[in-house]
Design a protein around this nucleic acid. Structure first.
Lengths: 352, 352
DNA sequence: TTGTACGCGTTATCAG
DNA sequence: CTGATAACGCGTACAA
């Protein structure tokens, strides 16, 4: 009963007095085999507790059925949700998902790419870090002919596909919503300019103001980290100005929360005096007593679609790199923090 | 310049007119090699953009430097934080982390184990699902001699290690805290009895009541899912009773939140009339206007320690399965929802 | 339909 | 110190 050592196709072939090749064929739905031996092999394989060695398989085929996902931090709701989407789409097809974190450091991103490349993954999903400047590491991926899909935070690339949301439009709609609430002096908490998502959000904000003939004021455009503290600080600075804002559109939810906390401390009424809307639709925004309006990025869907793009890529002609840019529609969630009419909308989902 | 095809040690050996074996030695810090050729090999390897093929390496050595992590859902804060801990501890040692989700379904757990086993991982980290009954799949892992570490949600096992928090004590301290606040009629929202973590929390609650000579009432022990809705429902049912509770200790934060929402709707004052404390210290608990008290499970640390236990295991004698049960101390976070004295503690961290 | 023989890229063993 | 060779487990032309 000491069948503890790994059982291989050779063990099966010996037991059955057939060749290992035949066993292999039986196990791989190869047509060139009689039903009889095929069934026999499958049966005894099961009996002997045979499990295929994917390593050997991969070495032969060049495919590992592993993909790598690179994100800044895996325990941030947005990223873990995207990863969940990827995993759920890919695992039924036999793929495994390897995760890597950059901690927003470019050097780690490079290291991760190298590590994934030499561990022979079949594809890479990446959301670049705030400090990523050049694209030498992405070039390496290109050279290795490994499919790569950007999601959310992408680099401009003429060859690689990407899945993002329409940040411009999300921001435009959020700003327009504030304008519709009667706000005229709208502050924007601007995210890191190194990332396209944040410049796009800024542009959407600007476009909405222009469209409604509102002035664009430099002093109302504040660079703010996506942290509670940064939001608090920004508000405390802003409220020292003579001209007070009547709304805040933040590029992140945490800074929106910080803003709200500070506004309350200052005795400013929300939403009657100031409306606030964030971005990302973090879980906490809906749980607050005063629900925070936000723009949802549909992370689960983003992950699933990124995975689908990857799978399509595999089917396509390898020579001709088919590149696909998917842009998802963001969803606006209007809650208390920006809802002056106090209509019951906190649960309502406004599909764009 | 068409050096695009994968370059192997043979390519290097040809170029240098030496054997592949020598190249291999040079690249692996093998002592049996002259410094001169070693440096030469390393230099040309770099020039030729050589990257080791980990697949071949793994096939030879039997080690893949991949580990698998199995959790119910990866985008739940607790789990993604543990995974982050594991990744951060293991990736500097060259390991990759593969993630799998069970969706709380036993069948998926079995499937995931099988998949990981045949993809030849070096170890498995698992938090079992609510519906996991027997342990046949864990036996398979044992047979394959693959190290396995339970974290948080474990099965009793005489051979496998585990890293958990002291759920009993966490619950005991939470309950004791409520008692110290003057509460005498304390409800417990009890989690799924299939999981040890929840029965332990229940026992901790019970022990605290006993210790302070408070009666244990069946009607105050309510099975509640860890969802907002379940918490709401439980409170609406409870407040139909003649005897109203004056505190709730919930085994989960979401149901604690639901309870608070429902209590407010009923016009019940928190914490003066009813104190509430949850479990898990989900991020939202600290962000609420009325901060929710909770028990922190130190997920990041749990992940790191699980990884360390795994690494220790590798060093130990393979024959003798060294089994280690690590129990971490939970941390109580007292916030508004259970702080009658209104002392500023919302930020204070009470280390146990 | 089945068997033989080789290669995937490395490393370890054994000579030299 | 270096080279030749086998082996890890599998899949697949090619031959039978």
């Amino acid at each position: 009963m000491n069948e503890n050592e790994k059982v291989t196709i050779y063990d099966i072939s010996e037991r059955l007095n057939i060749s290992a090749a035949t066993v292999s064929r039986a196990l791989n739905n190869n047509p060139k085999i009689s039903l009889k031996t095929k069934e026999l092999v499958i049966k005894t394989a099961k009996e002997m507790n045979y499990i295929q060695n994917r390593l050997a398989q991969s070495l032969k085929s060049g495919k590992t059925f592993n993909v790598g996902v690179i994100v800044p931090y895996i325990n941030r709701n947005f990223f873990s949700s995207v990863i969940r989407g990827i995993e759920e789409e890919l695992s039924p097809r036999g793929y495994h998902v390897i995760i890597c974190q950059t901690h927003e450091k470019f050097e780690n991103e490079v290291r991760n790419i190298d590590a994934l490349l030499n561990t022979q993954i079949d594809g890479i999903f990446i959301s670049i870090s705030k400090t990523t400047k050049d694209n030498g590491h992405i070039q390496k991926v290109l050279n290795s002919k490994t499919p790569l899909i950007f999601f959310d935070r992408k680099q401009d690339s003429p060859v690689f596909s990407s899945v993002t949301i329409d940040d411009f439009n999300g921001a435009y709609l959020a700003t327009e919503h504030l304008i519709n609430q009667g706000c005229r002096k709208i502050v924007h908490f601007k995210g890191d300019s190194n990332l396209e998502i944040y410049t796009k959000r800024y542009e959407g904000y600007e476009a909405a103001l222009k469209k409604y003939n509102l002035p664009i004021k430099k002093k109302f455009i504040i660079p703010v980290d996506s942290t509670v503290e940064a939001g608090q600080l920004a508000v405390s600075q802003l409220w020292k100005l003579k001209e007070k804002p009547d709304a805040i559109f933040s590029a992140g939810d945490y800074s929106a929360l910080g803003a709200i906390q500070e506004l309350k401390k200052l005795g400013v009424k929300i939403p009657s005096e100031v409306c606030v809307i964030g971005f990302s639709n973090e879980p906490f925004t809906q749980h607050m007593e005063l629900g925070i309006s936000s723009v949802d990025q549909t992370p689960l869907e983003m992950g699933k679609i990124a995975a689908q793009v990857f799978l399509e890529q595999l089917l396509g002609d390898k020579k001709l790199t088919i590149q696909k840019k998917v842009v998802l529609a963001p969803e606006l969630y209007i809650r208390d923090s920006s809802n002056k009419s106090q209509v019951e909308t906190s649960k309502r989902k406004v599909r764009i």
